[in-house]
Every structure is written in structure tokens, then in C-alpha cells.
Design a protein around this nucleic acid. Sequence first.
RNA 1: GCGCCUCUAGCUCAAUUUGGCAGAGCAACGGACUCUUAAUCCGUCGGUUCUGGGUUCGAGUCCCAGGGGGCGUACCA
Length: 532
Amino acid sequence: MRQAASLQIPRSSKEVLMSDETRAKPTADEEVDARDVRKVRMGKVDELRAEGIDPYPHRFDRDHDIADVRDRFADLAAGDETDYKVKLAGRIVLMRGHGKLVFADLRDRTGSIQLFVSKSVVGADELSAFENLDLGDWVGVEGTVMASKRGELSVKLNGFEVLAKCLRPLPDKVKGLADVDTRFRQRYVDLVVNEDTRHVFNVRFKAINAMREWFHERGYLAVETPMLTMIQGGATARPFITHYNALDMDVYLRIAPELYLKRLIVGGLEKVYEIGRVFRNEGVDTRHNPEFTMVECYDAYADYHDMMTLTEELVSHVAKETIGTTKVTVRGQEIDLAPPYPRETMSDLIADKLDVRVHPSMPVEEVRAVMDQLDLTYKDEWGSGKLCDQIYDKLVQEDVLGPVFVIDHPREVSPLAKATPKDPSVVERFELIIEGRELANAYSELNDPTDQLERFEAEARNKAQGDVEAGDVDFDYVRALEYGLPPTGGMGLGIDRLIMLLTGKTSIREVILFPTLRPEVFADEPDEPLGD
RNA sequence: GCGCCUCUAGCUCAAUUUGGCAGAGCAACGGACUCUUAAUCCGUCGGUUCUGGGUUCGAGUCCCAGGGGGCGUACCA
């Protein structure tokens, strides 16, 4: 990538390309320029200015989207012409010159349509000005709707204006842009040339809208809670740390909004949800980006059974709204997201797959024996619950096709969930597993302040012993619980993973507009020292 | 973090069993063409083969180091 330095256009090229005289007798300089698409196009910008035309005008009054025109004239017969006038705006994506006739494809966000530019309508000067456009230019056009002899719906141009020049050549009009690195770094180009990319993000935008509407209709309040936090909590993850100058203290970027949302339930808001970014200072791979989007919702008086119903309804609703079906195909396997999803205990899933029966209530020695037998490593401080969770996590989950609600998680790995009445070693919690991945996580929220404080303290002890993922004691949260958190069901769902599911993408970067990447090196730019 | 793979024109890709003048399509530029659909036809231009070393008479190709990216793996949602 050689952006920065070459952005400086030599003065000479301006003069060379502006003058008709020098154009008639090409200089050596100009021949060099002709190889450089950017310089040629910058020359065209100068030419426009020389003619008194602003190549970057301030606005354009369009009166139709391209889709409007297509809908309205869907039945126009080949060769028919109308006197219906339209003003459209968009990018020129294809051009087919034909002497005294030029065809071009104009695209806006609703679709594309053919432009029909005839010398007999616009005159020689305007036709040649149009031919002088480049692929990628933004233009505003005015014309009448017609269908070509071959039946292609078209706009017969009366006039056009450049809205912004495209100085850089677009990638191959057929093959598009395939280089993954460039696609992610220059997403704007990816979006221009790759239909599939536009589709993926349309699904994403629609899914989030559908989700907001769905919560709104059910009386949930859309709330916003802090992203800069003083206390690490709400999930088990390593946080990003940044510095707040005014208070001269380090703060965390949130790893989950959970503890704030439940404070709002204490405050009596009863039904809340938040869709937003969370940040986890962990590795990057096809399923993980350091910043990702999740939705969390909390419902007073509900428990985790209610949240299961809510989750399966939400997921299937969003699927129908975005891709029109609840059936999705991932890696050749068809999965139906229509409810209800089966409920399976973690212990049963382990027994089915590995033919061993373990449970968090078992003596730790017995579970350790199973770990040994399965060749799994463990730490001395881990109890039966953590060991069971490890067995499930390492050996079982990846083979769960789902959708299935895995229930009865060990209390030891669920510091914010309420234990089941029948068995204090497991909690009222579920994870929605699809294709071996955790899509959602929910529980009957722990609302006993004394119990909660003990669990925080256990975490803080782990943190003091070097566990970077363990949280702090959130005294304010405990105080909130002392004011009374009603029985509450809460659920969190990873939106990026849901979009992967809906679009069949196997990499999370395909569903995030600007995924986290290493900084780009600009070859022509001197290295800027960035500290060490 | 570790392992494997990969990087050639603006874009998409070629370049023979360790090696022998770096090529094509699209885009661009010049020209022809009033119904094309990735228009077509004629002509022209375009390269630090990711970077730096090394082996060799000779390196896109082989070796070493570095960089970007992908996949797998670990932590994790």
C-alpha cells in the first residue's frame, strides 16, 4: 500500500493535463502519467475545474431510489419509452461505450439500473463528458424511464453531473476483491464491489433492528450502561485497561453490561435490554474479535425457563425477519432454529458422549480420576464443578450440533446464577449451543446479597492469586442487591455469532465491518515512533 | 503465544522435474461502433515478484531473518 506519499500530486501533471496543447503533443511526463490511473483521474478533476465545473458539489436533489423506479416500471415492455422523469444518484459501476450511444450501470444502496445516453438526446459535448466518467464516480442523473430493445429497464439521460470523482481504480468488475486482508482493511471497497459483503451486513443491520423491535413490542426498555468501568465483573474474561486522566486512574473497558442492567431491575425498570459493544482482552481467531456486540436482557419475576422460551422465540424471529426462514446451513449441515429447542443437562451430555457419569456434587477425587482417565490436565484448586465444566468444554461441546439448551451448570463456574432448589451444586442456567458454539448464556439471577458477596470474594481471591480473568468484589452491586433484586431472569447473546449463523460465515471478521487488525504499514511513509 | 500455509501489475490469476529474458484477463490510455448487459474489435501502457540478507554464472522459484494475511491450536463468547 503506497498511499500517503503518492497523495502529493506533482504540480506539473496538473498543468500538463489541463492544457489542450500539451495533450495534442504528449510529453514524456504525460506518458508516465497515463499509466497511473490515479493521476489520470486527478487530471480529470482539474479539467472539470478548468471548465468551471465543481467536481465535488455540495448536494443533489434526487427524487427516486433505484428500487422505486424498478418497482414502478417492473412491467415495462422492451422498446417502450415513457415521459416519466426521474433524478437518481449513485455510483457508476459499469460502462459500455457504443460510439454515439453509451450504456452505464448506476448503483445506489437499493440496487442498480442501466443509464442510456444517446448523442441524439444530449448532444456531442455531453456525451463525451459522460464517456469521460470513470468507473466508481458518483453522479447525479436526470432522465426519463424506458426499456431498451433487449428489455433492460433504463433511464434515458437528459443530463448528469459529477457528485464526486473516484480517483482510485475499483477492483476487477467480474472477480471483485478477493484478498481477505484488503477486504477487511478497506471495507469501503469491499462493500462497493462485493455483493456478498453487502448482503452479510444487510442481514446484520436487519437482525439488530428486528431484535430492537421485538424487545420494544414486549415492553423492554432500551438502556445504556457504562463502558468505562472501575470494577471488572459480569463475566469471566481478561479486560482492557485504559487511563482516565482527570481522575488519574486506570479504568476497564467493560467485559459485560450485566451488573449494571441488574441494578436497573433493582431500580424498578422491570424489563431492560442493551445491545452494545463489549471488550475482552483475549486472542483473535475465527470466532473471537476483541470488541464484539452482545445483547443482554433482564426480566423481573422470570426465571431461566422463561428465558429459554424468550431466547428460542427471539432467535427464530430474527432468523425469519432477516433471511426469511429458520433453516440455516452451516458446514453442509442443515439446522432448524424453530422452537422448541431440546433441554439437556451438562452431565447427561457428558455421559452420552464419553460414557462417564460426572456431576458437580461428586467428591473431587472421583472427578479428578475421570479427568486423568480422559487425559485432561487440571489445577489443584479446581473443585468438582470446574472439573465437570472442563470435561464438557474440552470434549463435548464442539460436537453438539444443536440448537440445544445445555442446562444445570456447576455453581462453581457460575458466580452470578442462583442455585437450583433441589441441588446446591448446580445452578439455574443454560447455554444455547449451536454448531458447537455458545450463542447465548442465561440464568435465574442470583439475588441473595450474602451469597453474592461470598462468590465475589472467592473470585477476588482467585484474582489475587494471579487469575487475570477473575473479577473484583463489586460492593456497590452487593449494596444494590441489599435493596432487593426481585426474582429475575437474564440472558446474553452474541450478536456477531448469530449473524455468522444466519449468513453461513465461518469467520467472525466477515460479519464485523471493521474487524481488529494489526496496523497497516504504509510503505512510503517514514515510520512514526509509537513509544517503544 | 505456538505450528502449518501464503504474499507476482490497480484487481483476479499464470510462470515445467531446485533455477534460464515475468505473462494473461479485467481496469487504464488511443481509436472504431446508436440497443449493449462482464458489450465487441484494433492498438498502447503498466512490475522494488512483501522487505532484507545468502547460495548460484543466473533466483518469482532454493536457504536464512523480518513483516502482512489465512488456517489450526491455546485462553475465551
